[in-house]
Simulated scan of single mutants.
Amino acid sequence: MKVVIAIVCLIPLVGFSQIGGQFGYQSLNLSTNPRSAALGGSSVSLADEDISQFFENPATLDSVGTKNLFFHINPYFADVFVYSGAYSFDVGNMGTFAAGIHYVNFGEFNLIDQTGNGLGTFNAQDYTFWVGKSQVLGPFTLGANLKLAHSSIDSYGSTAMMMDLGGVFRVSKSWTVGMVFRNFGTTISNSTTLSRPSVPFDVMIGTSFKPEYMPIRFTVTSNSLVEDNFVEQEDTGGRNNSAVDKVWKRVNLGAEVLLSKNFQFLLGYNHKRKQELRLEDRGGGAGFSYGIMLKVKQVEFRFSRATYHVAGGSSFISLRTDLNDFKRIL
Rank of each mutant, 00 (worst) to 15 (best):
Y269P: 06
I317Y: 09
G268H: 04
R320M: 07
G287P: 03
R302V: 03
Y156S: 13
G283V: 10
F109I: 09
S318K: 00
Q53P: 00
V220D: 06
N93T: 13
S198A: 15
R170M: 11
G291L: 04
R282D: 07
G118H: 09
L137H: 04
S52D: 07
W130E: 05
D154K: 11
G143K: 00
T236K: 14
D281Y: 12
H309Q: 14
R305N: 13
S155I: 12
T128G: 00
H309M: 14
V3Y: 03
V299G: 06
S36V: 02
T236Q: 15
F122L: 12
T221L: 12
S191Y: 03
G116C: 05
N240K: 11
T96W: 02
G284Q: 03
L266R: 13
S304V: 02
V64G: 03
V136F: 02
A86R: 12
R302A: 06
T219A: 15
Y83C: 10
N93E: 14
A149D: 05
N57A: 10
T186Y: 04
G24E: 04
A255W: 00
F201E: 10
F218Q: 08
R196E: 15
M94F: 14
I101V: 13
F16D: 13
S318W: 00
K2E: 15
G313A: 11
R302K: 14
S195Y: 10
S224W: 10
G285L: 02
N68M: 07
T128F: 11
A6C: 11
N110D: 15
M163E: 06
K173N: 14
V14F: 11
V3C: 03
N229M: 02
G178C: 09
F303D: 08
V226P: 05
S42I: 00
S151V: 03
S134Y: 01
G166R: 01
K274F: 01
P58C: 04
D322Y: 09
I292L: 13
L61H: 00
L69N: 01
N229F: 02
S36Q: 06
E256Q: 12
Q125Y: 14
L266S: 04
R182D: 08
I153D: 05
V4Q: 10
G41P: 04
I73W: 10
S152D: 02
I112S: 14
S198Y: 03
F23A: 09
L39D: 03
A59T: 05
A311W: 04
N229W: 09
L111D: 15
V203C: 05
F263M: 14
I73H: 00
G95Y: 05
G254C: 00
E212L: 14
T60S: 11
V91T: 11
F181H: 10
I11S: 03
T221Y: 02
Y290V: 00
G185D: 00
A47S: 15
S172Q: 07
V44R: 01
R305F: 13
L319T: 10
G118A: 12
L13P: 09
V168F: 03
T321V: 06
G237A: 05
G287R: 09
S43V: 11
V64E: 01
F184Q: 02
N223C: 04
M179G: 13
G138S: 12
G268V: 04
V180F: 01
Q18P: 01
A255H: 05
